[in-house]
Write a protein that binds this DNA or RNA. Sequence first.
DNA 1: ACAAATACCTGTAAGC
DNA 2: TGCTTACAGGTATTTG
Length: 270
Amino acid sequence: MPELPEVETVRRDLVRVVAGHRIEAVEVTGRRTVRRQSPQDLKERVGGMSVDSVRRASKYLLLDLSSGDVLVVHLRMSGQLRWHQPDDERAAHTHAVVGFGHGEVRFVDPRTFGELFVVGAGELPFRVGADPLDDGLTGAGLAAALGHRRRPLKVALMDQQIVAGIGNIYADEICHRAGVRTDRRTDTVTARQWGRLAEAAGSVLTAAVAARGSSLRDAQYVDLFGRPGAYQQEHRVYAREGLPCPACGRPIRRGVVGQRSTFFCPRCQK
DNA sequence: ACAAATACCTGTAAGC
DNA sequence: TGCTTACAGGTATTTG
């Protein structure tokens, strides 16, 4: 579910609420939520530590602890982090709770794809590519990293090892803004198109962060306080099959690219 | 080395 | 009103 704008929104909320605060208690009830180590090990390494800072790497949230360890959270498809008081009723599928003196962060995840784990600083078990917000993308950079392969463009844009943070919604929005077909093989994308893609990635994701992310009708994504985002109102193609393209008025079509639902304008994207 | 398919889960909406 | 099927924001692993 959550892509860069949604994860970044939650990160900013966490900075406001928990940065500088001490973790008083950790509870793990989900059977799959902590799966890279024992829940006991995670609790021992997290309990009693302060949260020095909260960073984002691609779609991972990284809570830097005073011990030097990092508490890593990935929401995957259906995970949420929610701020509550201990006596608030717990939502179904609440799998972990990190308690502070002034409230608690709950990890809620119906599909249980999401996870929590703790690693030492510098031991992050994943590699992430350039961040469109932090690093800025260039057409030349995208062409060099992606242009020699034969994958569909959309699949390449969602490769977290190359470009960090783009998922199914924003890949479609970025391709539409750039005027490029989602199923174009990357070795056929022109330099001009790579330039437009780099620019579109920056502008779409920046605007989506400003709008605090996209919430679809099932409201799976909400921020730390349960509030939906607003960027879905600015979607030009995603989940808009049959509705007019904002640029040309032709109906938006739906297809499948890389086994994922894909929305596009048959006229604007070449 | 690369690309495509599959697996991991539960909830919801659509279709009959 | 059920019942069945398709589909959902992601990524690691397996297969070809």
